[in-house]
Design a protein around this nucleic acid. Structure first.
Lengths: 215, 215
DNA sequence: CGGCTAACTGACCCGAGGGTTAGCAATCCC
DNA sequence: GGGATTGCTAACCCTCGGGTCAGTTAGCCG
């Protein structure tokens, strides 16, 4: 009669993903430095030592978490941008709320905060985040703006700054949520921010006021 | 003959400020958790134990640093906003570059990063920062926008979101500098951001002027 | 010049937590 | 069944750093 409840199971294939998920939670809650490996292990239903079977060090685990958080969202963004055909205004109106929703729902906001907070002590991490995600996103948006400028849709001006101007309020609203809402500050409705802000900025970006161009 | 160079001096009055200054440097470089009291003490030219003559704990020292960073800048902002008389557009054009310069030059950017990064582990700190600075700044800007809306200068819309939309790109440019420039990413010229972005947003915020939008 | 006060130091304590290792037990294979 | 394999754990080690305290000495006051 085998034990009905073995004390643990061998599940080599499933462990890494579970550990990374648990680590994401704990890192997001506590930040890198304050996160305890014991807590991560406990949440993953595993002993601390088991973590070291899959990740050589805490920092490597952190890297895995960031990579995990980056990959799918990067893909989603790129696909959405690549698929679009219409005018710049239409693109912006379609993309920003989508981006807002993606950021607001997923774990990206926590990861952003983590990367910002720990960047000095783990510069390599900031580099991964920047090179793999931010740089590319900025290039996509900036490129769209440049093309719109070439078509005369958008006024002259530094495309990189325009891109920053478009995206910044949403990112900051997210950081706000992570930073100030826990202490009782009123949150920003990220989608409302996206909706209102995209109209405001378009009002200042679009050239000639054919104004319609809603296609 | 007594030693011409005593090994240390009693300078009770000067110590706290020196310690806070040193702490600001080290906290800004390393973040709260990773900052070592020994380093702070060394930079202040003092032994670690001496810190405890003036600050009961590391966290209290952190609080002192934040308070030090907040106070003078809050005053500068409030004065600038209160003194202004002209139209909203003129106010924005005057204030944003000033704000950008203030943020860019002082230690505020580092402190912002610190507050964001450590907020979960030191919520009380986020509260101080929010209540003493952010809340008030947002109220000032939001109030100006509401009044401009009442005068018909600015289109309808959530004033809080408008305020966020105005300020966010500059703040994010600062966080960018703190986070990504150290790893080799190209910086944003914060003043250029302020100049271009204020025009863009005003273009979308200001009512009237023929051209109008759908609203 | 001597002695008192208190600003300051050096050496210590100790808890926390990242990382390690000896061995146990689930599962595979015969 | 039973032996080999190896995923996994319990218990440990050891460094790091916040915090403490007994003593030292700068500077003042008589």
């Amino acid at each position: 009669m085998a034990a009905a409840a073995p004390r643990w199971r061998r599940r080599k294939a499933a462990r890494p993903a579970e550990i990374v998920a648990a680590a994401l939670d704990v890192f997001a809650e506590r930040g890198f430095a304050a996160a305890r490996l014991e807590d991560i292990a406990a949440r993953a239903g595993v002993s601390k030592a088991a973590l070291y079977l899959y990740f050589p060090t805490k920092e490597d685990l952190f890297r895995a978490v960031v990579a995990e958080a980056v990959a799918p969202n990067l893909e989603r963004m790129r696909a959405a941008a690549a698929a679009f055909e219409g005018s710049f205004a239409a693109l912006a109106r379609a993309l920003l709320p989508t981006l807002a929703a993606t950021l607001a729902d997923g774990p990206l906001a926590s990861v952003v905060k983590m990367v910002v907070g720990e960047s000095r002590n783990f510069p390599e991490l900031a580099r991964v985040w920047h090179d793999d995600l931010v740089e590319k996103a900025l290039a996509v948006v900036g490129g769209q703006i440049e093309r719109a400028q070439a078509r005369g849709e958008v006024k002259p001006g530094d495309p990189r700054i325009y891109a920053l101007g478009l995206v910044a309020p949403m990112l900051l609203a997210l950081l706000w949520r992570e930073t100030f809402v826990p202490i009782g500050a009123p949150p920003f409705d990220v989608e409302a921010v996206a909706r209102q802000h995209v109209e405001t900025v378009l009002g200042g970006m679009l050239a000639g006021r054919g104004e319609g161009r809603l296609d």
